[in-house]
Design a protein around this nucleic acid. Structure first.
Lengths: 226, 226
DNA sequence: AACGCTATGTGGATGGCGTCCACATTCTGG
DNA sequence: CCAGAATGTGGACGCCATCCACATAGCGTT
């Protein structure tokens, strides 16, 4: 019996669901080391299978990383949904819209800080905008992170917290701001900033975005402030 | 004569300034392929030297990447300085402050789109905030990108385009927004967006930040807009 | 001027990686 | 029940970073 305990073994020649097992194992690698830590050989090793077996389910390493990336994106959606769900109920629709908008941002940044490896994996590689619609990257509610943000923005417009003419493409602007902070915090120059400093930064950033989106009250768009 | 044309050779056993040559060659690799394209072996090959020679000047690959990263950060500073220098002269100090602030942002994003590989290299790896002060990463004016942004923000405060009490830490917020768009554009889901779409996005983003930074004119900070 | 020390470059080996090709085993449909 | 498809294995190749032992060149001392 050459079976050493601790090493995953199997009695059948076939694995059963190797594809899923690889995604699972690879996700754990990404969780601790980011997408570049997803080594094909190490992943197959953990599953207890020869390196080449992976090629029966993915054309190459990048395809595996891609699949893991989609799953990570879905986890990001979950985190955002959690922050939205944790919101205290309100009768005021304006308050509600603003709360949901904030929750989208805080959930995003909470996930980035809690699971930096997966967050980075979610944004790894051959991506175009089409993937944001992929249902695999959606949360339990069926919406992707991008779509969750869109809904929150629609809510702002409905409550006149945002000018409708500014709505088109606003996802990209807001997304940029929040994403930028996430990136600077997890592998940029702000890495390792203690929570006591990051939490206010998150708050202030969302304040800034919120304020920047609001409709112009009087005359405030011209070069001079007032 | 085993010298094949095209391959860099040298007549002396010593190279002269191998360290600088490695940084130079590695920078070219990063320019086209980003920091992960900086392979120690390929870099030394281009310089015409054995792989191990690099270890006389850098403890490991990461140190080389780090040196290249600093140089790339300096190039980023140059790009920002260029946009500032290209500004039309103005008598209006308010206009000037706003212009410089915008130029900091446009320069940053122009560099990111023009030299995505170097931009990514600039933000690669073991970084903490201390490196932003490193003079190696400064531009011709002696200021790092971070410091250039700080100056621009000071200018806004001086012209009452920004509330002084919001000044501390504002670098991080503004930086996040601009950096986020850069990242989404060059290796995120917005990759490959044509210039016709990115240019307005850059403009709108800076507008949003500008607006978000402005002092509250009347009553506009409370949950209700007006 | 000669000597030795140190800085610098070379060569070879090791272990990790992704990927390809040939082969083995199992499952499935006719 | 058997052929072929699906799946897993083994070995090889070329890339990589890094380590050790060795070679050579330049520099300061005497």
């Amino acid at each position: 019996m050459p079976e050493r305990p601790g090493k995953p073994t199997r009695d059948t020649y076939r694995h059963g669901d190797l594809r899923q097992a690889l995604i699972e194992a690879g996700t754990e690698l990404a969780r601790t080391g980011g997408p570049e830590a997803i080594a094909l050989r190490e992943t197959t090793r953990r599953v207890g299978v020869a390196p080449n077996a992976a090629y029966r389910h993915f054309p190459n390493r990048d395809a595996l990383v891609q699949a893991i990336s989609l799953r990570a994106m879905a986890e990001l959606a979950h985190a955002m949904e959690e922050d939205i769900a944790a919101l205290p109920p309100t009768d005021d629709p304006v308050q509600g819209a603003r709360d949901r908008f904030r929750a989208v941002g805080t959930g995003y940044l909470r996930f980035a800080r809690t699971e930096p490896g997966l967050f980075r994996a979610a944004f790894y590689v051959p991506d175009d905008m089409t993937r944001a619609q992929d249902t695999v990257s959606a949360g339990h509610g069926g919406l992707t992170p991008f779509q969750l943000l869109g809904e929150a923005l629609d809510g702002l417009v409905d409550c006149a917290l945002m000018a409708p003419e500014r709505r088109p493409g606003a996802e990209f602007l807001v997304w940029s701001c929040v994403h930028g902070l996430a990136v600077l915090l997890i592998d940029g120059p702000l890495r390792g900033l203690p929570d006591e400093l990051t939490d206010p930064a998150v708050h202030d950033l969302i304040d800034l975005i919120d304020k920047g989106l609001r409709p112009d009250t009087s005359a405030a768009d011209a070069p001079t402030p007032a």
